[in-house]
């Protein structure tokens, strides 16, 4: 009797194991995601909606909607690279055996971080150009180039501007950016004219 009970139990477990089902599906890839209140530097744009909706013809879906495509569409519309305060909806409607639509809708405020990073790069390059000049090499060097590694000139990584050197700050009150792409000594003079009080 006990052997029979054990056999039933074991076969039940075996059947359960055979019927075991599982899967892991990739829903979405993202480059930035947060649920916390964060202040990302950039230019805020309007609130936009992006969607990826596919039709259902009779009862056959004509595609596989995707959250990522909906986010891409929203960013494309707003010409930005991050959506702030975003909501993702799943949308569905269907007139049975006639027509319907299913997909994802994303709504959010567009933020353009590219402008902010471009500004900070320009300001950093301006700071480097000024740093190279105040190190006293006497000749102009491109802003992107590291200063020569001799004992008189400190390495770029360890360089700290002296109190006499004005510090360039990023942000809305930052001084007007200089054109570091301009070649020659004119660029340096331009920098001094614009950055020095």
């Amino acid at each position: 009797m006990r052997a029979l009970r054990d056999a039933v139990f074991l076969s039940g477990i075996a059947a359960g194991g055979l019927l075991l089902s599982g899967c892991m599906t990739r829903i979405m890839d993202f480059t930035v995601l947060s649920t916390k209140s964060v202040d990302i530097p950039g230019k805020r744009g309007p609130r936009v909606t992006g969607e990826d909706v596919d039709p259902i013809i009779i009862f056959i879906p004509a595609g596989q909607p995707n959250v990522k495509t909906a986010v891409d569409n929203a960013l494309e519309k707003g010409n930005g690279d991050v959506l702030l305060d975003a909501v993702i909806y799943n949308k569905f409607w269907w007139i049975p055996y006639v027509y319907g639509e299913a997909g994802f809708v994303v709504e959010g405020t567009v933020l353009d971080t590219r402008q902010a990073s471009k500004q900070s790069q320009n300001v950093a390059a301006a700071g480097q150009a000024r740093g190279g000049a105040s190190a006293g090499s006497g000749s102009w060097a491109p802003a992107q180039k590291a200063p020569p590694q001799d004992s008189a000139t400190p390495a770029l990584s360890s360089y700290a501007p002296s109190s006499a050197t004005p510090t360039v700050q990023a942000g809305p009150d930052a001084p007007k950016l200089l054109d570091v792409s301009h070649p020659g000594p004119l660029s340096l003079r331009q920098a001094e004219a614009e950055l020095l009080p």
Binding site: T31, I40, D81, V82, A86, I88, N90, F92, P96
Partner: peptide, 27 residues
């Protein structure tokens, strides 16, 4: 009959304070 059987819904899946699929420069 088809119109009477019409069904539809819109469900909120998630809220985020920031989301992107593009290469953004986050310090």
């Amino acid at each position: 009959a088809a119109a009477a059987m019409l069904c539809g819904c819109m469900a909120r899946i998630a809220d985020f304070t920031a989301v992107s699929t593009k290469n953004a420069d986050i310090p």
